[in-house]
Amino acid sequence: MTIHLPQGPYMPRATPLDLAPGAPAPTSRTVFSAAHVVADPYADISPDDPAAVDWDSTLAFRRHLWAHGLGVAEAMDTAQRGMGLDWAGAAELIRRSAAEAKAVGGRIACGVGTDQLPADGTPALAEVIAAYEEQLALAEEHGARPILMASRALVRAARGPEDYLTTYAHLLRQASEPVILHWLGPMFDPALEGYWGSADLDEATDTFLKVIAEHPDKVDGIKISLLDAAREIDVRRRLPGGVRCYTGDDFHYPELIAGDERGFSHALLGIFDPLGPLAAHAVRVLDTGDVDGFRALLDPTVELSRHLFRPPTRFYKTGVVFLAWLSGHQDHFTMVGGLQSARSLPHLAKAYELADGLGLFPDPELAEHRMRSLLTVHGGAR
């Protein structure tokens, strides 16, 4: 039956992709999905209160990703870190997810930042380092690989590239195991403009690479989220041997993961939250050496990803959680911080159409029913 969306009538797909859980993890690439959190819709909280998380549903979604062979990148920006989820909530998320990973044998890496510091003012560099150390210790205590996230506080504290070099050198010396470095661009978080001590990306890249070159034994890999494929390839080719490049480019991930004659990127992506089963299957095809088959599976997903991550890019989480609701991974479309209101009805309707066309919904009838209910609430059902 046709559903009338804001963009026009649409005939929903009748059958989903057949992607059952239980397949092994990909072997040729290390693949993480940055996972979202599920809010508690019945929590009686105000906008200024800490986030209320539905822990059972949040952990169930992580088990879903592990069951399809993906790693989980926990407490990252996809989990609304700094956009509804504070450090106390993130710390509890890390504890619970790390315990769940251990129980099921899942791969997990966790975001380490400085968001326990005040959101305004200019902290001392020593305060930034101490905040990082606190979070690093928590991740290591619970057996998760740390991801050193870009810090808003460090942007305010640093006087130039040398302060970034000093901060990261100290943290890497402190780390007991190799970490993943994360360069998150201002399109994902405007407060990170000028990270690495310069708004000039060439200069910032040189500083970033200097950190890695001086401590290659303490860097498992780097995640680059700049939506700039050419820059990622350039950085990838300049990395020391043994240091992985994890693409965070939600616009160009198929070509970057496929790679070229001089190398390839692994993956740590927010779009692999809604694409999880399909993405894992595609990389397993790539494991066989079938690059064309991999691209045939993953290239058609780029239109959906570009839609979800369109400017203002930082609100991509709304589309991610919306698709999780349509897919039956949670019973409601409510987000911590009320972020479900951050995208328009036409935007969400287009996301539904694109995802349904790809066969992403395990139960297309449920997805259609929920889409119709959303249209009804907005007064747009026909």
Rank of each mutant, 00 (worst) to 15 (best):
Glu232Cys: 05
Ala349Ile: 02
Ile233Tyr: 07
Arg63Lys: 10
Leu171Thr: 05
Pro300Gln: 04
Arg81Asp: 00
Thr166Glu: 15
Phe333Arg: 08
Cys110Gly: 08
His378Ile: 02
Gln330Glu: 11
Val211Lys: 08
Gln135Cys: 13
Val211Asn: 10
Gln174Glu: 15
Ile233His: 03
Asp299Thr: 12
Thr376Val: 10
Ala342Gly: 10
Leu304Arg: 04
Pro146Arg: 09
Asp249Glu: 12
Thr376Cys: 03
His347Trp: 15
Leu278Phe: 02
Thr58Arg: 07
Gly22Asn: 07
Trp325Ala: 07
Arg295Lys: 14
Ala34Gly: 03
Ser46Cys: 01
Asp77Arg: 01
Ala52Thr: 09
Ala355Gly: 15
Asp206His: 06
Phe272Cys: 07
Leu268Gln: 12
Ala213Ile: 03
Arg310Gln: 14
Ala213Glu: 13
Leu275Tyr: 07
Thr58Tyr: 02
His347Cys: 03
Arg96Asp: 01
Asp49Phe: 11
Glu177Thr: 11
Ala99Phe: 12
Pro240Asp: 10
Leu375Ser: 09
Asp290Gln: 05
Glu368Gln: 09
Gly380Phe: 11
Glu100Asp: 14
Ser373Leu: 14
Glu177Arg: 12
Pro24His: 07
Asp163Gly: 09
Thr58Ala: 06
Tyr352Lys: 04
Pro274Leu: 11
Pro277Phe: 04
His332Ser: 15
Ala367Phe: 03
Asp287Cys: 04
Leu275Met: 13
Tyr195Glu: 14
His170Asp: 14
Ala91Gly: 11
Ala119Cys: 00
Asp48Asn: 07
Glu133Asp: 15
Asp56Asn: 13
Ala279Asn: 08
Gly357Cys: 15
Ser97Pro: 08
Leu125Trp: 03
Gly105Ser: 05
Tyr316Met: 08
Ala158Trp: 05
Leu209Trp: 06
Ala199Ile: 11
Val336Asp: 06
His281Gln: 14
Ala213Cys: 03
Ile180Gln: 10
Glu365Thr: 13
Met83Asp: 15
Val37Asn: 01
Pro362Lys: 08
Arg95Asn: 12
His281Ser: 14
Leu148Asn: 04
Ser46Lys: 10
Pro216Gly: 00
His36Ala: 11
Gly359Ile: 07
Val291Glu: 09
Gly82Arg: 02
Ala230Ser: 13
Val31Leu: 12
Phe333Glu: 05
Ala130Met: 08
Arg29Cys: 09
Leu308Tyr: 12
Ala67Asn: 07
Ala158Lys: 11
Glu368Cys: 06
Glu368Phe: 04
Pro47Ile: 12
Glu162Ile: 03
Glu368Gly: 09
Gly89His: 04
Asp287Arg: 08
Asp120Gln: 09
Gly380Met: 13
Ala99Trp: 04
Thr78Cys: 11
Arg152Pro: 10
Phe32Ala: 01
Ala351Lys: 12
Ala150Phe: 03
Arg343Gly: 06
Gly111His: 05
His329Arg: 11
Pro21His: 08
Ala258Gly: 06
Glu203Ile: 11
Leu360Gln: 12
Ala139Ile: 07
Gly328Ala: 00
Ile233Asp: 07
Ile108Trp: 05
Asp228Phe: 09
Leu358Thr: 00
Ser225Met: 12
Tyr195His: 13
His347Met: 15
Leu148Thr: 06
Ala131Val: 06
Gln116Gly: 15
Asp40Arg: 01
Asp48Arg: 12
Leu181Thr: 01
Arg343Met: 06
Leu125Pro: 09
Ala191Phe: 02
Ser305Asp: 11
Ala51Gln: 04
Asp249Thr: 05
Met371Cys: 06
Ala98Ser: 15
Leu138Ile: 10
Glu74Lys: 00
Pro312Ala: 13
Gly338Phe: 00
